[in-house]
Design a protein around this nucleic acid. Structure first.
Lengths: 224, 224
DNA sequence: CGTTGCATTGAAATCCCTCAAGCGAGGTGG
DNA sequence: CCACCTCGCTTGAGGGATTTCAATGCAACG
């Protein structure tokens, strides 16, 4: 409905790279698709929308999240270049996804993926493996949210990001403090305070608000 | 290693119902298996043990959980009669499982399940569906742990349990306050206080510590 | 060079945790 | 059969970590 129409012509901000290419979702899953650009904070899909596509980040970053009726938000994951997201088993999406920064996203029709999985056992197995990996990650997050302190959460997050998004001379954090807070189950103020605390302890340097350099991995390991 | 050997003869407390029967893991997945009895607090499998079996609760209840090095524990789910658990994608278990009360558990060799999934697309699809359902549930828990207050967590839990474990004239809670606390990311004292608070507000009655009667579902819905 | 929005910092308040004691049901042994 | 013991649950008081409220800082942009 009010969600994005995916048709190129009607897309609002999204610039489409015309179809004709293929998208590799996994080792043995390569399907025809196309790509679109999403501005920062633009919705890619919404909760309980029909799940017609599967998505892969080409560049930029995406947040998946669920919200309570009063607006409280829990981000369940960040998706970085190369990551596949929006994979659903039922007919509808069970969470929403938005770009945290301007991003290019590749789209594959779910019907195409479904046909492949129904015909190719290797592909079906890889779908299962991808879902299982997400499950492990979700449980890791449950441990973090249920039992870790603010410092431990932030340390875990920094280690995760430095592992996943290594840049030259530091790590880019392609999301706002608000996004981090809603991922870690904290407030933006606590995230900010904790980051400066970790910096004062010389474990990291905040080059800019969104760029860190890791100095003492061991200290973070201990804190996480 | 120190984990339980599954062989009937060597099992410590576990009484085995001899093999020969079959276990239905899903609509189109029925495989040979056997069943064992586990005492309350007895380990069914441990983190990073080899995942040789898949399990299904026949009677009783099971907790799946992960622990931090200092002993803090996060329960990721309770498994009630009919539920399948211990389904892994890699070679090893990524969490531990213990009986919360004396339970009868059916076991199926993972190799048997693997063979079936590799041959039968319907079975592979159902495995995927089961994993996906767990994923949705894990994300629901993330929202609870990251963004809900103590009252909201307890209310959500009570609604979940009354839906899943309805008994005549009330609901049986087949786990201790400590289990509830580690599932909800709270302490046992907060769980206890919150339950009596909810009782004082006439939403439930605590017949015994482990048996509740739901009086005002609407009030709990609002609180959740 | 002012505006705008995100990030940081400070002070006070709150919710939940920690520590501690009391209670009660179930089991055991006398 | 009853006294006693044990273990889990409940309740209270105080403290602490994180949130809330509020103000300031800072960088990007027009």
């Amino acid at each position: 409905m009010q969600g994005m129409r995916i048709e190129p012509v009607e897309a609002r901000n999204a610039v489409v790279r015309p179809a004709g290419g293929t998208v590799r979702l996994a080792d043995s899953i390569e399907l025809p698709g196309f790509s679109m650009r999403f501005d920062r904070d633009e919705e890619i899909f919404g909760e309980s929308e029909s799940a017609d596509f599967v998505y892969k980040v080409v560049s930029g970053a995406v947040r998946s999240f669920r919200v309570l009726s009063d607006g409280r938000r829990q981000i369940t994951g960040f998706h970085l270049p190369g990551d596949v997201f929006g994979l659903e088993l039922g007919a509808d999406h069970r969470c929403s996804a938005e770009a945290t920064v301007s991003s290019e996203i590749a789209l594959v029709r779910r019907t195409a993926l479904g046909r492949l999985a129904a015909a190719d056992l290797a592909a079906a197995g890889q779908l299962l493996a991808m879902t299982g990996a997400e499950l492990n990650q979700a449980r890791e997050q449950a441990l973090l949210l249920g039992r870790k302190s603010a410092v431990e959460r932030v340390a875990s997050f920094l280690l995760e990001m430095t592992a996943r998004a290594p840049a030259e001379r530091g790590t880019e954090l392609p999301m706002s403090r608000s996004d981090m807070a809603d991922y870690l189950g904290l407030t933006i103020e606590t995230v900010s305070r904790t980051l400066t605390q970790v910096e004062r302890e010389h474990a990291i340097t905040l080059q800019t608000a969104r760029r860190i350099v890791l100095h003492d991995r061991h200290a973070l390991d201990l804190a996480a």
